[in-house]
């Protein structure tokens, strides 16, 4: 009886990713969030259908999205792009924060975290699996949104080039590539939110605090980014390059800000995740 571990136990096999996916999949908030990603394009479509043609009475000329709104009904690609554009600023931020911020904190608040640690799931492994699955769900949500938008947009408005009021039309084949590029960039830039929410999730037992805190800090950063008086400090804000995906709508593509944004996002996310792992592998779990 002097075997050091229980039969069949291997630290590297604890909390398999599939098990964690299943743990999260059965949750109402996961189902709701993913469901809403499918629903949103349908709501937007319905709004365009029933909203009538005279949408200019609010005089929103020159707004950031005005050209995108005009073009949203010009084809499936443009519709998907519109869905992304209206979600990128806030909805996707909340979704990423939700998946990443809720994952550890909710286990802590249910009291199941200590049982996972007592199995024992190595703490770093627990975090890694939770992070991978949370990111996986976030990416799935992102792709669901764009995919549904592309599907219903194409069914309703047809398969047309990706249009833009200021740049040349982009043929559909290349348009899909551009759309994928935008998705990839959004996925990368939102890693900052995921990183921040994940860190807060480790620091607090209140899931709401982690999700809300991450969204709040993101909004704060966006506000600071609007203040031009801050000068070059703004370049260091995590939200500074959050709109750089628009460079992919240009012809030729403007990728300098994409690279800068990706660098900024990776650095921030690494720092946040590093802190989360550092803290969690050392802290006393008291919940």
């Amino acid at each position: 009886m002097s075997t050091s571990i229980a039969v069949g136990y291997r630290p590297s096999r604890t909390l398999p990713i599939v098990a964690e996916i299943r743990r999260q999949a059965s949750r109402r908030r996961t189902q709701l969030a993913l469901g809403f990603m499918v629903l949103l394009p349908l709501i937007i479509l319905a709004a365009f259908e029933f909203g009538g043609g005279s949408g200019d009475d609010d005089g929103n000329g020159g707004g950031a999205f005005s050209s995108l709104v005009d073009l949203a009904t010009s084809g499936g690609l443009n519709f998907a792009l519109f869905c992304l554009a209206v979600s990128a600023g806030f909805l996707l931020v909340v979704v990423f924060a939700l998946f990443a911020g809720d994952t550890v904190a909710s286990e802590a608040s249910w009291g199941s975290l200590r049982y996972l640690l007592a199995i024992p799931v190595p703490r770093a492994r627990l975090l890694a699996v939770k992070l991978i699955v949370a990111l996986g769900y976030s990416f799935v949500a992102l792709f669901l949104l764009a995919g549904t938008g592309l599907l219903v947009g194409t069914l309703r408005y047809g398969w047309h080039p990706l249009g833009s009021t200021i740049a040349a039309q982009i043929p559909p084949g290349q348009g899909v590539l551009r759309l994928l590029g935008i998705l990839a960039y959004l996925a990368v830039i939102l890693l900052v939110v995921a990183g921040l929410a994940f860190l807060l999730s480790v620091l607090t037992d209140a899931a709401l605090g982690a999700v809300g805190g991450a969204v709040l800090l993101w909004i704060l950063s966006s506000i600071l980014d609007q203040i031009t008086a801050l000068g070059s400090i703004r370049n260091a804000l995590p939200t500074h390059y959050s709109d750089a995906w628009m460079g992919l709508l240009s012809t030729p593509v403007q990728t300098e800000d994409l690279a800068k944004g990706a660098i900024s996002a990776l650095v921030y996310a690494t720092v946040f995740w590093g802190l989360a792992f550092f803290r969690f592998t050392r802290k006393d779990v008291t919940s």
Binding site: I5, A6, S26, S112, Y115, A118, I119, P120
Partner: peptide, 19 residues
């Protein structure tokens, strides 16, 4: 913390914790 020997220990600590 996280010692593998814990795999031979079953525990109920500080009340139940379930999903």
């Amino acid at each position: 913390p996280g010692a593998q020997i814990l795999s031979r220990v079953g525990a109920l600590v500080e009340g139940p914790g379930f999903l």
